[in-house]
């Protein structure tokens, strides 16, 4: 101790202090980004609500943001009811989840409980490849192949299918988020103690019974967390819906019709020429804030559930 006192008085090490401060600031950047997101969008959103009432935005059933050609034009402000966008987003996300939840969970079960090490070795990376492919590729494929295919098949069955149906976008999005669910669920299933597996099998339960009645129930919280994360990804997904879902703000629950989504509208509102202060431009930020708040909430809940679950089996 005596020795170190000498060095301490000998050198102040201001550089070290500076370095530590720099490291600290870098870690705080994440908080600034979050604050930046909230503030920038909150500011524009507040301006938007000067022009359009909150109730119209949240409960209005009609979405048609016109740009005024002349400022004094009648009806230049358009209507900004976000309900069709929200229902459209939910419809497509629900279709995606209807594809991804069973596929992802059952794939995870097969990989963690049945597959040999060899099958696992190639099937898992291939599945994860689905998550590595950029969404613009899925969007292209959805618009070019899947949507016409569904339209044609529907036509043969005598169904009226829109060329940009919610079903096509949702289906393709579902495949894209399969690996999100399967890899997280796989971790979660692997965390279930082997003792439970042995207990059940040791009583003469088949593997399927063990999985359905013991392992999956024990892993439910983690699985639910993975579903929530996937749902959040579906809600925030942009390129697939921009390319395959279109811009028709229909208020419908029919998956064969065209709907639009929050993200697709944000892109549509902010591409091309815009005056920065018009209600049309500002509405994109209000939609952005809505999107951010929703996905943030889903993620927080999901992460809390998953962490709780992890602690349980630590």
């Amino acid at each position: 101790m005596a020795q170190s006192e000498i060095t301490l008085t000998g050198r102040k090490r201001p550089l070290e202090k500076l370095i530590k401060l720099a490291l600290f600031l870098a870690s705080v950047l994440a908080i600034f980004v979050t604050i930046g997101i909230v503030l920038s969008m909150a500011f524009e959103t507040w301006q938007f609500f000067q022009r359009v009432s909150v109730t119209e935005f949240l409960f209005g059933l009609e979405w048609s943001p016109q740009t005024a050609i002349r400022a004094d034009q009648v009806g230049s402000s358009g209507s900004f009811g976000a309900v069709p966008l929200i229902t459209g987003t939910l419809l497509i996300s629900a279709i995606a989840m209807a594809v991804a939840a069973p596929t992802g969970l059952i794939s995870a079960i097969y990989l963690s409980e049945y597959a040999s090490a060899r099958v696992r070795g190639w099937a898992k990376p291939l599945l994860e490849m689905l998550a590595g492919i950029p969404s613009v590729v899925y969007g292209f494929f959805a618009a070019l192949v899947v949507a016409p295919f569904i339209r044609m098949t529907g036509g043969q069955l005598g169904l009226e299918v829109a060329s940009e149906s919610a079903l096509a976008a949702g289906l393709v999005m579902g495949v894209m988020i399969v690996p999100l669910i399967s890899s997280l669920s796989d971790d979660v299933l692997n965390a279930v103690p082997n003792a439970l597996r042995e207990a059940s099998l040791g009583m003469g339960a088949t593997r399927a019974e063990t999985i359905k009645k013991v392992i999956v129930p024990a892993a439910i919280p983690g699985i639910a967390g993975s579903f929530l994360l996937a749902a959040s990804a579906a809600i925030g997904e942009t390129m697939i819906v921009v390319m395959a879902a279109g811009l028709a703000a229909n208020l419908t629950a029919n998956p064969l019709e065209a709907v639009t989504t929050v993200t697709a509208q944000i892109v549509a509102l902010l591409t091309g020429d815009q005056e920065f202060d018009s209600a049309k431009t500002l509405s994109a930020f209000a939609l952005g804030l809505l999107l951010f708040a929703t996905t943030l909430m889903l993620n927080m809940i999901a992460m809390r559930i998953v962490n709780k679950y992890r602690e349980q089996y630590d």
Partner: peptide, 28 residues
């Protein structure tokens, strides 16, 4: 295994109710 039951070193009840634990085997 229905004829030859097993009890393990570490107690390993299922994370279910006591009732469910006991009834699990007879049920399946």
């Amino acid at each position: 295994r229905a004829h030859v039951g097993m009890v393990f070193q570490k107690p390993n009840p299922f994370p279910k109710s006591i009732f469910e634990n006991v009834i699990y085997g007879p049920k399946i």
